[in-house]
Design a protein around this nucleic acid. Structure first.
Lengths: 239, 239
DNA sequence: TTGCTCCTCACGTCACGTGAGGTGGC
DNA sequence: TTGCTCCTCACGTCACGTGAGGTGGC
């Protein structure tokens, strides 16, 4: 007539270990035993176990379950908090699910912010620009690339591609030509310079340093040279 | 110029401990140290850390992160699986959130299935019927109460209330009257008897036993007596 | 005797959080 | 000297899962 631990677990649709766990926490009273030490559960234990399972199924942590079991009518605030937590989790998961779907749709790599993915496609062995992009988008926030004038809407800007592939020993006139093209492109885009300037003013010292370090160590001399010219021209522009 | 562990963590927007954790797993290479043992992180570490954070932010477990970092282009199947897991979690959480909202809306206690809540309201100290309900709804599935003819749509059926409050020493004619009323009510409800009968035929031995045990130990003699009469009448009806 | 069930430790999971205890830098 | 930072163990979290090692029941 009485049930073993396994039988009780099966009746309640849960596991042997869960039953023992609840018992060790005092959520479920220890049943009487037979002479050989086997436990004998009865209907009161099944009822209690079903109530525990119901509460854990709703998402109550076990310490809250202990409280709710003894005063089920006063669990109002706990329920409100639970609902809030559930809603938060749902919106968070929905956001990341949408992001994962977007990554799948575009067929891009998941380890970069999506704005940077086209850059990764552009040139395989050139990781300097990619890594610079990772640091800059993190420090300045995503969207910075758009405001820099690059049209990362599916295809990399040819100028960006050329910059990322610029060899360290590129000749002076090639550097100058690329710099001028970039300056022209950035100047045509109406929105970027003020954004950049205001961002730069509000940047903390450590962020500045991180970007400077990224530029210095991740790009080669020719690339840095080109970016310096661009930067100087834009700064003149803003003043 | 190089960064301490704390500085690196701050730059990446994560914790000291997370950085050390990634390092201990080999996700992040150990940086060179100064003479006193202090670690010196550089831009490569920041880039790596940001890529790790991006992947964990999407929900990748750390062992998958290790793989994805080294071959970011081949994480397609991992992404598909991730999307599926996210979707499953979302629907599961939505279901429980809706259930929690319903509990809040009705102002009922969370430790019972919602169909049983009105029963709990009916009589305070009478837990026998409540506990029987918990066992029966779990074993036979929710919805069984509806098919038993009780209209649990906001108010407890007066007959149920009377049954749950029936004292053990109720007199014979009171028992008979209540049994007849219940039989009449159940017979008027068009849908229940076949459901019950078919369920009973398909029940396993352990479930039968659980219900029998619940009836025997959670109800008093008078209540069991009334239910026996009702059961007998219904069984005659079905044949 | 063999196979199945029951029992009690006790470590493992996952991604870190949180001290403990000691030392270096200013 | 004091306060702050850095370091390395190492245990804690949460709700159990998963053996290990031993015994009882048929």
């Amino acid at each position: 007539m009485p049930w073993s631990t396994k039988e009780l677990a099966d009746l309640a649709g849960t596991s042997l270990r869960a039953v023992r766990h609840y018992e060790s926490l005092g959520l479920l009273p220890s049943p009487p035993r037979r002479a050989n030490g086997y436990k004998q559960y009865r209907i009161e234990h099944l009822v209690r176990l079903l109530r525990i399972r119901r509460l854990t199924g709703l998402g109550f942590p076990l310490d809250q379950v202990a409280i709710a079991l003894d005063s089920p009518d006063e669990s109002g605030t706990a329920l409100v908090r639970l609902e809030e937590e559930l809603s938060e989790s749902i919106t968070r998961l929905e956001r990341t699910r949408d992001e994962v779907r977007e990554i799948l749709r575009l067929g891009i790599t998941p380890d970069l912010p999506p704005e940077l993915a086209p850059l990764a496609e552009a040139g395989e062995p050139v990781h300097g620009m990619r890594d610079l992009g990772i640091v800059v988008t993190h420090v300045l926030g995503p969207g910075i690339l758009a405001s820099l004038g690059s049209d990362f809407d599916g295809h990399p800007n040819p100028l960006d591609t050329e910059l990322s592939r610029l060899p360290a020993d590129a000749e002076a006139d090639r550097r100058e030509r690329l710099a001028n093209d970039l300056i022209a492109a950035l100047t045509r885009a109406p929105r970027e310079s003020p954004v950049l300037a205001s961002l730069e003013r509000t940047l903390g010292a450590s962020s500045r340093e991180a970007i400077a370090s990224a530029v210095d160590r991740l790009l080669n001399n020719a690339q840095v040279d080109v970016l310096r010219r661009v930067s100087a021209a834009l700064q003149r522009d803003t003043q």
